[in-house]
Write a protein that binds this DNA or RNA. Structure first.
Lengths: 181, 181, 181, 181
DNA sequence: AATGAATGAGGATTCATTCAT
DNA sequence: CATGAATGAATCCTCATTCAT
C-alpha cells in the first residue's frame, strides 16, 4: 500500500531476476521477455528502466562484483594474522567451488564478456584491484597478485572437476605461494 | 573434377568459422546464417553436416581443446628439466595472455558453458587431465594440480588486467608453487 | 498445383500490396505485418524476399514510376501532331487528378521521400527525364521542361482543390506554354 | 519570476521542434518522445499541450502554411507592375528550390497528408486560395490559377532535379503563362 | 498546472529448422 | 547428396497514452 503508482523496488527486482536467469541459462539466454516474466513485471517495464539489454547486463554484473568483493573483504578483514588469512582464503575457495556454485557461474559468464568487451573488462579490473587489497595487507602487494591468481585458478578448477581436489591441496598451494623461500 | 563431387574440407571450414565467430561475437552470436556466410557455404549445408547448433558448438569446442592441449603438451615435452619446464610454462602463460588472446576468449566461453552444462564440463575435465600429465612428469601429481590452477589464474588475470604483471612475477609464482619448503 | 514448394508470384504480390497500402495509409503506415496480411503471405516471408522495409519501399516505388512513365509515353506516342499532343496532355492531367487519384497519392508520398532521401530523388529524377522525352519530340527540349512542370502543378492543384479547375483552363495553360510569343 | 509560473513559449517551441523534426525524419518519424527531446520539454508536456499527435501535426502544418503564405504575399505586395510581379515570382521559385529546401520538404509532407486526409486538404486549399489572390491582382483570376500551378511545378522540379533549370527558363515559362496570345 | 512513471500493443528483424527439389 | 525457399516464433525496442502525484 501507500506507494500508489510507483514501484521503487522494481529496478532491483529486475536486476536480481537477471542474475538468477544468467545462472540458469547464461547471458545468451537473457531476453526482455524472460526476465520480465521472472521478475513479475510487465514487458514494457524492462526498457523503461534500462535503456537496453546491454545496460541491464552491465548493471547486473556490477551488482554481482560489488556483492562478491564485499564478501571477500569482509572475510579477510576478519583475519588478524597471516595464518588466519590463509585459512580464510581456503574457506572462500571451497565455498565458491562447492555447492550450487552460483557465483562461479556468474564469474565465468562475466569473464567471457570481459574477454570481448572493454566495458566489462573495466568491471573485472576494478574487482581484481579491490580483491588484492585485503590480500596485500597480509602478504604484500606482489604476493597478493600471485595469490589472487592462484585463488582464481583453484576455485575454477575445483568447480569444473568431477573429483575436486581436497582442502589439503588448497591449503598447501596457498602456503607455498605465501611463503618466501 | 579431381576431388569428385563433394567438398571434404567443408566440415572443417564450418568448425573453424564457428570458432572465429565465437571470438568475435560470443557463443550467443552463433547462428546458422552467420556461420554459413563466414565459412562461405550454403545455408542448407549447416543442418546437413550438423544436426543442430548444439552439435556444432560442441564439436567446435572439442576441436579447440584438442588444439590447445596439443600445443601445451608439445611445449612441455620439449622441456628436459624442471627448470626448462618452468620456463616453458612461463612462456605459455604470457603467450596466452598477450596479443589477440584468441584462445583465452574461447576458453572463457567454454567455461561459461561448462559451468552450466555437463557435456561441456566433460570436455573441460578431459582437457584438465590431459594438461596435468606433462606437468606431473616434471613436478609430481599433486604439484601439477596446483601449478595447473596457478597457470589458469595467472593467464586469466594477465589477460583481463590493463597493467598485466610482468614475466618476473609469473616466474616467481611458478617457482614458489613448484619448490617444496 | 504444380508449383509445389515455391511461389514465384509472391514477390510481385507483396509489391502490389505495398502500393495499395501506401494509398490507404501512407508510407508511414507501412509495416511488415500489415503488408503481409494484405498480400496474404506469412510475416516471415516479408524479410525473406526483401532485406528490409527500405528495400521494399524503394522497389515498390520503382514499380510505380515505371508504370506511370509507361502510360505517359504510350499516350504521347499516340499523338502525331503538336495539337494532338496538347490534347493527350490535357487528358492525362485530368485523368490523374480526377477519380480515386491513386497515382497522385503515390506521387506525393514519393516526392516527400525524395525531398529527404537521395535514393528516392534518383528515382524521381529518372522519371522526370523519361517524361520529358516524348514532350520534347513535339515541343523541343526547353518547352518540354516548362510543360512538364506545368503538368505537375496543374494535376497537383486540381487534385487538392475542392473546386478543381475545368478542362478549358488546363487547355489554355498548355496552349500558352507551348506557343511561342 | 517575471513571467510567473508557466512557460508561455513552450507551445510555440514544441510546434517549431515538430516542423524541424519533420524536415529531418518525415511525418512518420514524429513521436511525442522525439519532439519533447528536441524541444527540451518534459514528455508529459506533450499531451498536456496537445490532445494527441494528430492535433500536434495539424497545428504545426497550419503554422507552416501561414508562414509561407505570408512571405508569398509580402513579396508580391512589393511588386507594383506585372513585370515586377513576374520577377518576384521568379525569385520565390528559385529561393524555394535552392539551398536547404526546408519549405519544400514540408510542402511535400503536407501534400502527402492532404492527398489522403480531408482535414489537411482543407489546409492546402486555403493556402492555394490565399496564394492566388496577390497573383490575381496582377494577372486576373484565371491566369493566377495557371500561374500558381506553374509555380508549384517549377519549384518542385527544380528541387528534385540534379541539374535544376536556370533562371532564364523560369522567367520564360512565367512570361508565356502571363502573356495572352 | 504539470510531469514522469508505467505498460500493452505493435514496430523491424533474425532465427533454427523443415522440406521439396 | 545437397540446398535454398519458406515460416512462425521469438528477438529487442519504441510508442501513445494514461494517471497518480
Amino acid at each position: 500500500m501507500a506507494t500508489g503508482h510507483t514501484d521503487p523496488q522494481r529496478r532491483e527486482r529486475i536486476l536480481a531476476a537477471t542474475l538468477d536467469h544468467i545462472i540458469d541459462e547464461g547471458v545468451a539466454g537473457v531476453s526482455h521477455r524472460k526476465i520480465a516474466a521472472r521478475a513479475g513485471v510487465p514487458l514494457g517495464s524492462m526498457t523503461y528502466h534500462f535503456k537496453g539489454i546491454d545496460q541491464l547486463l552491465h548493471e547486473a554484473f556490477t551488482h554481482f562484483t560489488d556483492h562478491v568483493a564485499a564478501i571477500f573483504e569482509q572475510r579477510l578483514n576478519g583475519a588478524h594474522s597471516a595464518e588466519q588469512a590463509r585459512e580464510a582464503v581456503t574457506d572462500l575457495i571451497h565455498e565458491l567451488s562447492d555447492g550450487p556454485r552460483r557465483d562461479l557461474i556468474l564469474t565465468h559468464e562475466l569473464y567471457a564478456l570481459a574477454a570481448r568487451h572493454p566495458e566489462y573488462r573495466e568491471l573485472t579490473r576494478k574487482w581484481m584491484i579491490r580483491s588484492r587489497q585485503p590480500l596485500a595487507r597480509h602478504f604484500g602487494a606482489e604476493t597478493a597478485r600471485q595469490l589472487d591468481a592462484l585463488i582464481e585458478g583453484l576455485a575454477l578448477h575445483r568447480a569444473l572437476d568431477t573429483a575436486p581436489h581436497d582442502r589439503q591441496l588448497t591449503r598447501e598451494a596457498i602456503r607455498r605461494i605465501t611463503t618466501r623461500a
